[in-house]
Amino acid sequence: MSATTIHFVRHGEVHNPDHVLYERLPGFHLSERGRRMADATGRYLTANPQTNTAAAVWASPLDRTRETADIILSHLNAARIDRGEPTLELNTDERLIEAGNEFRGKRIGHGEGALWKPQNLKLVSNLYKPSWGESYRHIAERVGAFASEKIDEYRGRQIIVVTHESPIWTFRHLLETGRPEHNMLLRHAALASVTSITFDCDSHQVMSITYVDPAANVA
């Protein structure tokens, strides 16, 4: 039985001193701590016998995911050079982008983002079926389409995919429960964590899901 594993990595911490919801906005980069988190995860992936031979690295096109992926790639490519193998380049795909959100650019709980305001309160009345932006169903469908394509493209191999909390957890929740809707407060996808999903190449059925947090102790 041939299997493809997709390692979904969440980006590292973002420099955001004003605490705004940056969503898909440009110009939000990794903080120094975020770069250390990406470095820790890059070192973990390079030390792992499976992931250090990954066939490709993909990322959301946003700044923070590409920066995280570049740091991971620097570790993987150093190992590939040592083995006399060609280096990998970063690929991006719009289907991995952060979820759309009507609060983007606002500070949640303050000013225009204050939840007590009538126009905002009605948006967050149901955490399981958010009405403040892109639906969980659509998020899961676009990530699922990406995954299905890559299962075939990288048949029997491993790839690393750097994306965001919402796409990772929404897709995982769909695979584990049959539905993408969930309570956003109960997500389990820490910054720079790795959610690894192994699929049967023929049926595209899930064989296993594992989770590690290599950057948990990064200060």
Rank of each mutant, 00 (worst) to 15 (best):
D202N: 13
N183M: 13
G100F: 11
G113N: 09
P180N: 09
N16E: 02
L73D: 08
A38S: 15
D39N: 11
E141Y: 13
T51D: 07
L186D: 14
Q158S: 10
F146R: 03
F28R: 05
R142V: 11
L21Q: 12
I209A: 06
Y128D: 01
S203H: 13
G156F: 06
V143Q: 01
G178A: 13
A55N: 06
C201T: 15
P214Q: 06
N217W: 14
E176M: 10
K106C: 03
R95V: 05
G42Y: 04
F146C: 04
P86L: 11
Y136G: 06
T87Y: 13
L30Y: 13
S193W: 03
G144D: 12
L96D: 04
L25G: 09
E134M: 07
L123C: 02
L175R: 05
M37N: 06
H29G: 10
R142Q: 09
R24V: 03
D18L: 12
D39H: 10
V9A: 09
A47D: 12
H173G: 04
T5F: 09
I197M: 08
D213P: 03
G42S: 13
Q205D: 15
S74E: 08
E94C: 09
D213W: 01
E134F: 07
S196I: 05
P130H: 09
I159T: 07
D202I: 09
G144E: 14
L115F: 13
I160P: 10
A192N: 01
E85M: 14
E98N: 02
V20C: 03
P214K: 08
